[in-house]
Write a protein that binds this DNA or RNA. Structure first.
Lengths: 137, 137
DNA sequence: CTTATAGCTTACGTAAACGTTAATTATAAA
DNA sequence: TTTATAATTAACGTTTACGTAAGCTATAAG
């Protein structure tokens, strides 16, 4: 075994294309401390598959309406050394809270679905009524 | 049967308290055309149970990261006369798209949960490692 | 009837999450 | 090696979703 397996890396625009976000967005997440890609000799960002996975995770959180601050507390800052117990325990504690939140959202997701289905039903009824009225003329 | 059954109404602050949002937020949603409460002789807003239910629906959508514009297209504008087929059909079309989106989010919700669980696992392992190191000293 | 709330409109303020130049440097292609 | 892309930082702009304060009116309580 050697250490340099799978060192396929990506540029910022490759990542942007694949994840369908702007390069600005990626840099913004870095500013916020959510990712920490490497740099080339010429100071350009290089992303590993691991960096990419982390970005996907961030985007997934976003799709559920979590703020970037929430997300950073959920998955931890990219540059924390993970050395202090306190830091880790804080992340754990936050993770538990978010897990509970996710449970709640799972339930609400069904409710939202039902609401939309109910709206659809009413709209269809309304359409039928209108069509009947038209036929009456 | 008569028409004036169940006419229990609410003031804006009653609604705000119950739904745990500000009165400003409620008025803002009205500005955006998402709700259309009645008015008293003195021009104050009065909310029916139906208005309240609609607000709950809006809030539910928000919890999933939908924008207010998305939501208004999902559940339809409050003041549309629901008279034109085109309008209704547009809402229906949008509703279908959103239902599909919800299906996708349901799947992603599990993925997000798993990600957090994986993070937790790693954190716990890290904690154990640190504790062992401490015992070694 | 007075007065304390509560509500109304108008309008400026703000935080989050990027968008959009601009000026400069790296890298890839010819 | 020149040149066309692509990337970098810095900084100001924008949109969404409200917050907040001001000045005025309605309604409930005493």
């Amino acid at each position: 075994m050697n250490g340099d397996k799978n060192v396929r890396t990506f540029t910022i625009s490759q990542i942007a294309d694949e994840l369908d976000i702007s390069t600005r967005t990626i840099r913004f997440y870095e500013e916020k401390g959510l990712i920490k890609p490497g740099r080339t000799a010429g100071n350009q960002r290089i992303y590993t598959a691991r960096n990419k996975a982390r970005l996907k995770l961030i985007l997934r959180g976003k799709r559920f309406g979590f703020s970037l601050d929430d997300i950073s507390e959920m998955i931890g800052m990219a540059d924390t050394d993970m050395d202090e117990l306190a830091q880790i325990e804080k992340s754990l504690y936050f993770g538990e809270a978010k897990l509970k939140e996710i449970q709640d959202r799972k339930k609400e997701l069904s409710l939202l679905e039902q609401d939309i289905l109910a709206t659809r039903k009413k709209l269809l009824q309304r359409i039928n009524k209108i069509r009947k009225e038209i036929n009456h003329v």
